[in-house]
Computed example of a mutant assay.
Amino acid sequence: MRAITFYRRAEKKLSQVSDEIERAEFYYKISEVFYHMKQTHMSMYYVKLAYDTYTANSTYVIREINCLTVVAGNYIDLKTHEKALVHFENTLKIARSLGNDSMVTKALLNVGCCHNDMGQYDKAVSFFHSAVEVGEKIKAKELIQAYYDLALIYLRKGERETGVSFFEKSLEYVQFFEDALFGRVLNVLKALYIDLGDREHVLCAMNELRNAAGFPYLEELALEAAEFYNRLERLDDSVYFYRQMIDAQKQIRRGDGLYEF
């Protein structure tokens, strides 16, 4: 990943930067890059540097929330969801204290996603609905994700009518925000759960996600497809999509050797 190469080159000159907030901003940005590359420990190292600076300056509360969100995301990648949940709940508390509907929507969505990953679907649905309630007031872009997650939960449960209604709401906001990437995500969900397509139909939709931005979604959706076919006892198809998931994971980590020290 070229971004890492440039960040590491810039880091060598960071000692010349006297403003500690500028240094914190640099550390936060590089922690995000490492997070998206699943380089969890590197991400944690840099986000801690940024967080320590922001918490020492009371005027940077939103930056503090952003750091905690990266920390929680890294804990999810480490499969320690209980630790992630603590940080997501903390960001929700801070966002509510600020009265910032945008930050509250994001925090509610993150708490819901964490419960969802933990298999606590009733709690997840409750937080997704809360995110929708706040997000609809300000037409937050997070509505795309909230409605998508609600659609997936209900479609997975076999409650087709409810699932399709949430799918259509997610699609409505995809079109409103002109979010082409998430449109491709919805195409996979449609192929799998609404069209009940065969392997090739689902794979064709997934192939549209084979790029740097799409691989994290492809990883999740390939696992969803594998589990979907496993429930149907179509084991060959299930194994096929497990392999697609593993390939996506490899693609995400391909940046490992592309930065210079």
Score class of each variant (00 low, 15 high):
M1Y: 09
Y7M: 11
R9E: 15
K12A: 14
K12Y: 08
L14S: 04
Q16P: 07
Q16M: 13
D19T: 06
E22D: 14
E22V: 14
A24M: 01
Y28T: 03
K29N: 15
F34T: 00
Y35N: 13
M37T: 10
M42E: 15
M44D: 14
Y45P: 05
Y51M: 12
T59V: 10
I62T: 14
E64H: 11
I65Y: 00
N66I: 01
N66F: 11
L68E: 09
A72V: 11
A72G: 13
G73D: 06
L78H: 03
K79A: 09
E82M: 06
K83I: 08
L85M: 10
V86L: 11
V86M: 11
N90P: 02
L92R: 10
K93W: 10
I94P: 02
S97L: 09
D101I: 09
K106G: 10
A107Y: 03
L108Q: 09
L109H: 11
N110T: 00
N116C: 12
N116T: 05
G119R: 03
K123S: 14
K123P: 01
K123N: 10
A124T: 04
A131G: 12
V132A: 12
G135C: 09
K141A: 13
K141E: 13
I144H: 07
E161M: 06
D179R: 08
F182N: 14
G183V: 03
N187Y: 06
V188C: 06
V188Q: 02
L189C: 03
K190C: 05
A191E: 01
L192Y: 08
D195F: 00
E200L: 09
L209Q: 04
P216H: 08
L218D: 05
E219N: 14
A222G: 06
E227Y: 07
F228T: 01
N230D: 13
R231L: 12
R231H: 11
R234H: 13
Y242K: 05
Y242V: 06
Q244L: 13
A248W: 01
Q251C: 08
R254S: 12
G255D: 13
L258P: 05
